[in-house]
Design a protein around this nucleic acid. Structure first.
Length: 165
DNA sequence: CGCTGGATTCGA
DNA sequence: CGAATCCAGCGC
């Protein structure tokens, strides 16, 4: 017998960042931490960074060592350190060479989390899950870090860009 | 090789 | 509103 693997396939990410950002809402993010613990959270906020013509996108400054992952194939993690204290987690989207990515801005607990667990912010999300730049370049279509399909929220809000001019 | 600023968060 | 704190990117 066959069970459809409960993992969002790479083809899902090989589409425009804006669309992926929207449809990723409600999905579950699973992370098997090296220490053995594993987390499951529900994605509730994302933001699209649409390649070289998007001035807010790191890829717009040209392809460099750091941003090269964003120009690679979709479905991989682009994690980088911001302001020296927070790691932000992105998913590469679109086709190779476009430099698109979707930033995971916030989530909410699915399984039992300590009360102190804060997931409401791109920096706090990665801090709580224990994701660091060591996860940069990871394949997000297979363990230890992957997404599971789940019903989307009833209502989707769209707000202006956050944290950039 | 030194300087600068950033997709954030917290506290006053 | 400003500080905390790291390092990629760029200029000399």
């Amino acid at each position: 017998m066959k069970h459809a693997p409960p993992v969002i396939p790479r083809s899902f990410f090989q589409r425009p960042a804006e669309q992926v950002a929207r449809e990723l809402l409600g999905s579950l993010l699973c992370y098997h931490h090296p220490t053995g613990t594993h987390h499951r959270v529900r994605i509730v906020e994302t933001e699209a960074y649409v390649g070289e013509h998007d001035l807010a996108c790191h890829a717009s400054k040209g392809r460099t060592e750091r941003t090269s992952i964003m120009f690679g194939p979709a479905g991989y993690a682009y994690v980088y350190l911001i302001y020296g204290m927070y790691d932000l987690l992105n998913v590469v989207t679109g086709q190779s060479g476009q430099g698109q990515a979707v930033l995971l801005r916030a989530a909410e607990p699915v399984s039992s989390f300590p009360p102190s667990a804060a997931l409401n912010g791109p920096g706090k999300l990665t801090r709580t899950l224990g994701i660091t730049r060591a996860a940069n370049g990871l394949d997000l279509c297979a363990p230890p870090l992957f997404f599971v399909p789940a019903p989307p929220p009833r209502r989707i809000e769209q707000t202006p860009r956050i944290g950039v001019d």
